[in-house]
Amino acid sequence: MEAFLSNIDRVVDGFSWTVRLTLLSAFFSFILGILLTAMRVSPVPLLRGLSTAYIEGIRSTPLTLVLLFCGLGLNSALGVSLADSVALDVFWWAVIGLSAYTSCFVSETLRSGINTIPLGQVEAARSLGLTFTQNLRLIVVPQALRTVVGPLGSVLIALTKNTTVASVAGLGVQEASREMKLMFDQGIAPVLPTFVGFAIGFLILTLPMGYFFGWLSKRVAVVR
């Protein structure tokens, strides 16, 4: 355990990258998820089709493949670069891959929330003269969000853990599990305590998330 603790700054550094990956990917997948959902429920068949195809396509692709496609396909093979240093470049590609993947789950979650909103309220809003986007923004999304706060928390937790794929999927992005593997490889940390230590690290990140979203979903629940 001492060997593990003496390397605690590396552990913390690893997790700091995990947090950065998680927060940025969460942000972008949320925005993209809302967009995909708006398209999915829009009255325009083309938008609905595009959104459905995207979601079904990405959702059935393993995350490893999505990240490999971003890292090896777009970044290395096609030479699309997002930052000057290699480390930052792969970092941003990982953010893109994680966002592209997670947005599907955000969107599916939002859509399940939308389905809980009685159609009558949407019709009432239409009959007042609200446009489609006003209806979404003022009536549908606020209520859908409230019902999906809990499930969105689960998506965020899954995303947090999914960031570990970014290092194994050939991108070599800096994050906690990569740091752990490096420590093993360099023989500077005993295996068992290090495993436990990192597992606790993830617990420290995700447990509060779970409790926070649980608390939030109770607070914002719409009385029906």
Binding site: P118, G120, Q121, E123, A124, A125, S127, I139, P142, Q143, R146, V222, V223, R224
Partner: peptide, 14 residues
Amino acid sequence: DVGMVFQSFNLFAH
């Protein structure tokens, strides 16, 4: 310009 009142009220719950 056309107001509508529904059987199931349809008030905005939030």
